[in-house]
Amino acid sequence: MEIEAAKYLAAGIAIGLGAIGPGIGEGIAASKALEAIGRNPEASGKITPLMFVSMAITESTAIYALVISLIILFG
């Protein structure tokens, strides 16, 4: 395989696999937060920022994969 083709493949595989876990995780975080807001709508002001922060932390592995694939493509 040529090195250029391998680079594109590697970038695609890296971000594709890396996005699976955070996708599931963020879905769980959002669903639980919405459930909590549905049970107790007054607490939505407190729940929403915490949800964003925890989603951002969940997202980190996807970001690592993204950075790796960006470096492979453009670095």
């Binding site: 997202e59 970001i63 690592y64 950075v67 960006l70």
Partner: peptide, 17 residues
Amino acid sequence: IVSLSFRLFGNIFAGEV
């Protein structure tokens, strides 16, 4: 260091791309 910086940079740069 890695996660905090790459999160911000990665998101904004990926948005631009």
